[in-house]
Each structure stands twice: as C-alpha cells, then as structure tokens.
Amino acid sequence: MSDCSGCASAAPDGSCSSANGCDNPEEIKLQKTLGRIKHKIVVMSGKGGVGKSTVATNIAVALSLAGKKVGLLDVDVHGPSVPRLLSLKGKQPHIGDEIMEPVPWSKNLSVMSLGFLLPDDRQAVIWRGPVKIGLIKQFVQDVMWGELDYLVVDCPPGTGDEPLSTLQTLGPTAMGVIVTTPQGVAVDDVRRSVSFVGEVGNRVLGIVENMSGFVCPDCGAVHDIFKSGGGEELAKEAGVRFLGRIPLDPEVATSGDEGFPFMKVHRDTITGKAMEKVIAPMLELPDPPKVG
C-alpha cells in the first residue's frame, strides 16, 4: 500500500487501506484506482541511453495487441518521449473537475504524459522533487484509467525522485523491469537499480538486455558489435529473472522517430520475436486475488 502516515487511522507501518478505515479522501481515491489495476510494471534503468522508453512503449503496445487493457504512464518529467514514440505529439487529455482522461492510442491502450500538458515541447521543465512527486501521484489517482490488466510506467534513468515516488505510490505489488545494455559500464549503473527496487520493498520482474547484437539490414544476421551477455550475468548475480536480449535494429530507431511502435509494424522480425520473448512472462502473470 502507499504511505498514508498522515491519516489518523493509518496502520503502524504507515500503510493505508479501506480495512484500516482511512478517512483521507485522496488516499481513498488512490486505493480505489489501484484496486482496478491488476499488474503494475515499472520500467527503469540506472543508466541513460539504454533505450528504456522504447522498451517500455513496445511492452505496452505488445500487451495491448495481445488483447489486454493497458495504461502507459510516462513519468519522465524532464524528457517525456512517449508522445513522440506513439505519434501522439500535440494531443491533449480532457481535464475535468479533479479528473483527467488519458489520451487513447487504441481501444486497448491509453497514455498519460507531462508532454501532453506542455504548451511547447521546447520548454524546459525546472521542478524540484516535491512538485514531481505530486505530479506522479496525481497521474495515478486522478487519471481515469478504468479497469486495466497492466499499467506500464516509463521512468527516467537513475534512482531518484521519479522511480522512488512511482514505486511508493503504486505500492509493494508493483514490479520493476530493469533495462540495460551489454557493456560493463552500463551494467555497473543498472546494478544499483536492482538493489534499489528491493530496498524500496518491491520485486524485480526481470532484466532486459537491450541493444544486444546488431541486426544487419541487408542480410538479417545478428552481429555482436558490442560485448553481449552483461544483462544475463547481472540477472544471475542478483538472483532475478533474465527476460531476454533485444538486438540493436535500425528499424527500432526509425519506428520511434516516425511514431509507429516497432511491435505494431515489425512483430515478425528477429527483433520483434525477441521482444515477444521479453513480454511473454508478463502475459503469464497470475491475476491478483480479489479483495472483498
């Protein structure tokens, strides 16, 4: 559960639920929203430039194409890229009295990002931690996500305010998906993300090794131009699941720049099948027990 230490009826550990008789209207609203979301997947990395937003977006798209109801939440306050990756730049959510409607990408996928609320995508966002924390909580509790099978959250790199606030807001059932590239310098930084998730009180669903090998656009063969296997080694070291390798494919970059998700248009390629392998364990997650 999320922290509710300010409530008069909070549990001794600061958590809150309807069973505790919470009288905080915001907490009641948050718990009601979370109760309608089966699985919360937080995509993060201790290193920038590993393709985390692309991985998060394609996870959400693939889950939605599998017939699941999915929400994609972009909490990268300083560099929201999801609107571009889904060709949603310029779209605006409907904002009513204490509610917001996410921007639909398809009948199964809804999206929310600060990028939808900025008047100019060249505008820098200069916010301190408390403001970012408040926005993330608002994006969870005040957005009309409805009944979701999955909420996929794209976090900025590192172990700062955004991933910490996201995990604390979503509660202990949220699971981390850690993205790395094969090189040792990336794995060293990503290792901190694995320990971070555990220290916050959540579990790591698995590690993804992105940009693992290069898919030749002419022959289709995969060549290891970088060192490979760093993500798998880290998974073994940390005792967590290795979700798989995604090769470096020029079509992934092209798809992102043009706003057409790779998994929408290239599912039958080598890279598409690699992404499907990464997503398979998420589709196999058992539904949580119903409360009440």
Rank of each mutant, 00 (worst) to 15 (best):
M144S: 14
L167R: 04
L118G: 06
Q168V: 03
P156K: 10
G71I: 03
E98A: 11
V131M: 15
A60W: 02
P102D: 11
M144R: 15
R84V: 00
S113G: 01
A124S: 14
Q123F: 06
L114P: 03
K137T: 15
D120E: 15
L63M: 01
L117Y: 11
P104S: 14
R128Q: 08
S64V: 04
P172D: 13
W127F: 07
L148D: 01
E162N: 09
V131K: 14
I99H: 11
T169G: 04
R84P: 00
T166V: 13
F139E: 04
I136K: 07
L135D: 01
Q141A: 13
H94W: 10
P93I: 06
P102G: 02
S113K: 00
G171E: 01
G67A: 07
Y150T: 00
E98Y: 08
K89V: 15
Q138H: 07
G160I: 15
K69A: 04
G129V: 05
S113F: 00
V61E: 02
V70D: 00
E101D: 15
S113H: 00
D161W: 03
V131T: 13
R84N: 03
G134M: 11
D97I: 06
Y150P: 00
E147I: 05
L109W: 00
L114W: 01
S113A: 03
T159K: 14
M100C: 10
D154Q: 04
V77A: 08
T159N: 06
V111Y: 01
R128T: 07
L118P: 11
I99L: 08
R122V: 07
T173A: 13
M112C: 14
V82C: 12
V77C: 07
P102M: 10
P156G: 11
R84A: 04
P104I: 07
P172E: 15
S113C: 01
P163K: 06
G171L: 06
H94G: 10
D149I: 05
V140F: 09
L167P: 04
A66S: 14
I99M: 08
I59V: 12
K91R: 13
P119R: 05
K89F: 05
R122H: 15
G134P: 03
P93A: 10
V61H: 00
Q92C: 13
G67L: 05
D149G: 05
K132C: 06
V103I: 13
S87L: 07
G67S: 11
S87V: 06
N108D: 15
C155Q: 06
V111I: 13
L63K: 00
G71Y: 01
L73F: 14
E162K: 11
Q138V: 07
K69H: 07
L86I: 07
C155V: 08
L114N: 03
D97R: 14
R84C: 01
M112H: 04
M144A: 15
K91H: 13
V111G: 02
Q141W: 14
Q123D: 15
V143H: 05
R128I: 03
F139I: 01
K132E: 08
Q141N: 08
L114C: 06
W105V: 08
S113M: 02
L109D: 01
L135Q: 05
V153N: 02
K68I: 03
A62N: 02
V77E: 05
L114M: 15
P83V: 08
V125G: 09
T173D: 15
I95E: 13
D121K: 12
